[in-house]
Every structure is written in C-alpha cells, then in structure tokens.
Amino acid sequence: MSGIVESAGTEAARRLPDGQGRAGLPEGQAEQERTVRHTLMDVALEVFTERGYTDAGLTEIAARSGIPAGTLFQHYGGKRGLYLALWEEFREEQEHRTAATLTAERSRGVNDPVALFVAGARAYLEGAWDNRRLARLLAEDDGPAGFDALRRQWDRAWVRRNARLLEVDERRRAGRVRVSVLTTVIGGAARELGDCGDGTEAREIVDEVCGILVHLTTPPG
C-alpha cells in the first residue's frame, strides 16, 4: 500500500536519520523545511475544500501561506503534488491508527477475526471523523488526472488486507465478494461521516455501522 504514491517532499524527510533533514541538511534547516511543507499542505486543504481541486489556484495557495510559489513547486511540483501529498498523509494516518488498534486488541488476547475486523473498522471510521475535512475532499470526484486509478488501486489493496484479517480464502469468488461488500460499507460510512453535524451524530453512525458489520460477518444459520 505504501508506495502507491510517492509525493514530493513527504517520504524523504521521514526516512532520514536523526540530525539530518532532506538532502542531508542540518536539523534546524530541515525543521524549517518541514514547517514550510506542513504550512503549504494546511493551506492547500483550505483552498481545495473551498474551491474544489479544479478551481483551486496555486497563486492563492502561495498568497495565503505567505510562501513563494517557487518554494511550493520545489517541494510539491505543483497542485497535483500537493493533492497527492494530502492523500498520502490521510492514508498513512488511517493505516497507523488501525494498525495500532489491532495491536492493542491482540495484546488484550483478542484473536477472533470478526472482532478484530470490527475494531479496525471502528478505528478507521473514527479517523475519518477526526480528519473529516480531508476525508470529504478525497471522496469527491474532483481530483487530479489519474487519481481515480490510484484510489481504485488502494481500494483493492484494502480489500485484500481485510480478507487476510477475516481469514477469508481469496481464491473463492464468494469470499472476495463478501469482503468487498464489507469494505464498501466502511468506505460509504466514512463519506457520510463528513456530513455529520457533531460528534454525537458521528458516534451514532460509527456504532450503527459496526453493528451492521457484525451482522454481515455472522455465518448464516
């Protein structure tokens, strides 16, 4: 899953040893560059949310952030790079959240595949609510060229991961379809969370969806 998109200015800085930043810069300068990147991404999210990706302008992003357009191009290569960096950040946060939840559940002795699957789904949905502005943006059809194909690729990887978690035989079409349906339910609920009025309504939806997942994963008879 990681590696589907490698957005400029995100992966390199995360993987450098302590004391060095991008391209071996001193830590102080590297920290300044990280701040610049985070500022650009925060402002890009605001502008994309307000205008949509197509109508968003790099000039406005640069002006709001107070960072020259040339610096924006240096870190992200343009508007598409900024959008994909936001997507990568969302994916990584969601993957980290769900993985941490599964690790915690297993450490408590939980080993039932359905219980683990539902716990992971709850963590994913709670993350979608916490990051609802970004989740809502990424669910829209207005994205850069080629983004739909990347999203479908990630969706297929997500289905495969869920199949392994549920211990479903992926060689059987019925098993693949069942996991695909369950994954679609989670994705649809995550989009609905973006329109919730408050945390109480969001929690009700998360609880409802988790109940549906339990029902759908219960063997017939």
Score class of each variant (00 low, 15 high):
Thr54Tyr: 01
Ala62Thr: 06
Asp142Ile: 11
His75Pro: 03
Phe73Lys: 04
Arg97Phe: 10
Leu82Ser: 10
Glu140Cys: 10
Ala62Trp: 05
Asp130Pro: 00
Leu82Phe: 08
Glu33Cys: 06
Thr98Met: 11
Glu89Arg: 15
Arg97Glu: 15
Glu33Ala: 12
Leu40Ile: 14
Glu105Phe: 12
Arg34Glu: 13
Asp142Glu: 05
Thr39Arg: 15
Phe117Met: 02
Arg97Met: 15
Gly127Ile: 04
Phe147Asn: 02
Ala157Met: 10
Glu105Trp: 09
Ala119Gly: 06
Phe90Gln: 14
Leu125Gly: 05
Arg152Met: 08
Ala56Val: 10
Glu88Phe: 07
Ala69Ile: 11
Phe73Val: 00
Leu137Arg: 00
Gly120Thr: 04
Ala62Ser: 15
Ala63Gly: 06
Ala62Asp: 05
Arg34Trp: 07
Ala139Ile: 01
Gly52His: 10
Ile61Met: 13
Arg51Pro: 03
Leu125Val: 02
Leu82Asn: 07
Ala85Thr: 11
Phe73Asn: 09
Gly127Cys: 07
Phe90Tyr: 14
Phe117Pro: 01
Leu102Gly: 08
Leu134Ile: 04
Ala104Asn: 03
Tyr53Thr: 01
Val36Trp: 08
Arg132His: 02
Leu72Thr: 12
Gly28Met: 12
Gln32Asp: 08
Ala121Asp: 01
Tyr124Val: 00
Ala100Phe: 08
Asn131Pro: 00
Leu84Glu: 15
Ile67Ser: 12
Arg152Leu: 09
Ala115Cys: 01
Ala99Pro: 00
Tyr53Glu: 01
Arg160Pro: 01
Asn111Val: 15
Arg80Thr: 11
Gln29Met: 05
Ala145Gln: 12
Ala104Ser: 11
Val110Pro: 01
Phe48Lys: 13
Tyr53Arg: 02
Val47Thr: 06
Ala104Asp: 09
Asn111Leu: 07
Gln32Cys: 00
Ala149Asp: 14
Gln32Met: 07
Glu140Thr: 15
Ala135Lys: 03
Gly143Ile: 07
Leu137Ile: 09
Phe73Pro: 02
Trp158Phe: 14
His38Phe: 12
Val43His: 02
Val47Phe: 06
Ile67Leu: 09
Leu125Arg: 03
Ala128Cys: 11
Gln32Tyr: 14
Met41Lys: 13
Pro26Met: 03
Ala30Phe: 05
Phe90Ile: 01
Leu116His: 04
Arg151Leu: 06
Gly143Lys: 00
Leu134Asp: 01
Ala115Leu: 04
Glu89Asp: 14
Gly127Glu: 05
Phe147Pro: 02
Asp142Trp: 09
Asn131Tyr: 13
Thr35Ala: 14
Arg132Thr: 02
Arg80Lys: 15
Glu93Val: 11
Glu92Tyr: 12
Phe117Gln: 01
Ala121Trp: 05
Glu50Asn: 03
Asp148Leu: 09
Gln94Tyr: 05
Arg34Lys: 12
Leu72Cys: 08
Gly28Tyr: 03
Gly120His: 04
